[in-house]
Each structure stands twice: as structure tokens, then as C-alpha cells.
Computed example of a mutant assay.
Amino acid sequence: MTRKKQLGKIFLHAFIIVFGLCMIYPVLWMVTGSLKNNSEIITGSLNLIPPAWRWENFATGWKGFGGITFGTFFKNSLIVTSLSTLGTVLSSACVAYAFTRINFKFKGFWFAVMLATMMIPGQIILIPQYIIYNKLGMVGTYIPLILPHWFGQAFFIYQMVQFMVSIPQELDEAAYMDGCTKYSIFAKIIFPLLKPAIVTTIIIQFYWKWDDFMGPLIYLNKPQSYTVSLALKMFADSSSRTDFGAMFAMSTLSLLPVFIIFLVFNKYLVEGISTSGLKG
């Protein structure tokens, strides 16, 4: 029996390693492709090791287009992503607090409506939103990319509601006895206890917004305001030669912010989930 368990563990670990390599291989191929020239990328097939390490691809890619360096595109993405993530965290936490701690008319109905919005494809509301922002003169700015996130996101509201209902109501009652209002209870008690949900929201929302391509494509019309995801597309030119090496180099750099965010917050995410101890 012990031998069978050992063989089972060996098989399981071997399967996980092979599956993990299959999952990470495209990323490794892109990273190593950033050190190759076009012919090596096209004819090199699945080979990961570059014949020569061409670091000049990073310098070429960083130059950008039309005198606009990739530093500008990274700055634009950081502005849009950071403000959107901050708005998502604050607004979703406030809405979740209202659904879990405040009694108001038709609360169940509005909660159902909020959940129903998660089932609506984003393409359905794309045209009406564009018409509204265009009439308000906001097309060409970052406002359409940032503003909606300051009014709550259904997915993260639901996530925070599920976590918030596990926080004992006795904490609120004790705070009321000490003279706290609903606002101070939220700011001083509930919000700090939401760390696991907040960290999860930061990681997911930052990743989603950093990789967003459709939003910048629809609302941004000046190259100097492009985000990284939109700028990477500019490397591909159907009428002339595409510099795949520079494209892969900038794609590799574009992974760093997401990777850093995950490394920084992953520790708090794991600690929060394993030590929250608020279930009942």
C-alpha cells in the first residue's frame, strides 16, 4: 500500500511538472524570442536557446515610435491601471458594506440586479457607453477607462460581500456602544479586516486593466496617450517588416509590473487566507 502511494505521488508530481512546463512554455518562448532576430524567431521553431544574445532588441523596442518612447506608454498604463484599481477597491468595498451591514428598501432586489450585470457581455454596453462619453467630450482621454471603476465592479462586490458576511456582527455592535457611526465602523473596523479580499482585488484588477486592449483601442486616439497593450500592436505592420525581436522584448518588459504586483501581494494574500480565522 505504501509503495502504491509513493508511485501515485511520483506520478502526480511528474504530471504537475509536465503540465506546468506546457503552461509556461509560451512565456519562455517569448522571453527567449526577445533575444533573437526575425529570421531566428520565424525559422527557429520551438527552440528556446537563441544562437546569439541580441540585447539590442530591448534598446530598439524602447525607442518606440514617432519620437515616443516606451517609457511614455508604461507611464500611461501605470496611471490608468493604478487609478482604476484604487477605484475598484474603494467603491466595491463601500457597496459590499452597504449590502451586508445597512438595511434599506429593496436590498435583495438591487443585489440581484448587481449580480445580473455580471452576466451581461461587455460588448453589449460598448456602443452606448461610447456614445455617452463622446457626447460628454471625454473620448481621447483616460476618463472612460478609469471613471467606471469608481462606481463598483459586480465581481469584486460579490467577492467582498462573501468575505464580509463572515465578520462577526458583534464587532459592529461593540463599536456602536463606543459611539462609532456606520462610516467610522467601516473605515476603522471592517475595511482593515478586508485585507484578503482587498489583496485579491488588487491582483486581479491590476492584471485585467494592465492587459486591457479593447478599452484603449476604442477611447484613445493619440499615440502619446497609448497604453502598453496598444503600443505593442504598433510593432505589427502588414505593409512593411515587423520587428518581432523588439516586440517580444517590450512584451517581456510589460510582464514585469504584473509579476512584481503578484510577488509583493502574494505573501499577504496567502497569510490573509490562512490566518483570517473569522469563519464563525
Rank of each mutant, 00 (worst) to 15 (best):
F106L: 15
C180Q: 10
K75P: 02
E173W: 02
F265T: 05
L83K: 06
L145M: 15
F15G: 04
V270D: 09
A52G: 10
R241N: 08
D237I: 10
Y158F: 15
F248A: 08
S92P: 11
G277R: 07
A96S: 13
T141L: 00
S39V: 13
F99T: 11
F235M: 05
F58A: 03
K279L: 04
S34I: 01
F259S: 13
F99R: 07
L46M: 13
W55I: 15
I24G: 03
E56K: 03
H13R: 07
T2W: 07
L21I: 14
L126Y: 02
L136K: 00
R54G: 01
G137R: 00
L86C: 12
I198A: 06
W210M: 12
F235L: 10
L147V: 13
F104W: 14
L194W: 00
M118G: 06
G137T: 00
I49D: 03
I49S: 08
Q205E: 02
V113I: 15
I127V: 14
C180W: 06
D211V: 11
T252P: 05
Y268L: 05
I42E: 06
G245F: 06
L90H: 05
F70R: 03
I203S: 12
G245E: 09
I49Y: 08
E173Q: 12
L46D: 05
A231L: 04
S225N: 14
Y97C: 07
F191Q: 03
K9M: 10
P50T: 09
A246C: 01
G67D: 06
Q6Y: 01
F206I: 06
I102Q: 08
M23R: 01
T252C: 13
I198C: 04
S45H: 08
S276G: 07
K267I: 10
K4S: 10
K267G: 07
R101Y: 13
S240W: 02
Y183C: 07
L48R: 10
C94D: 01
I17T: 11
G8Q: 11
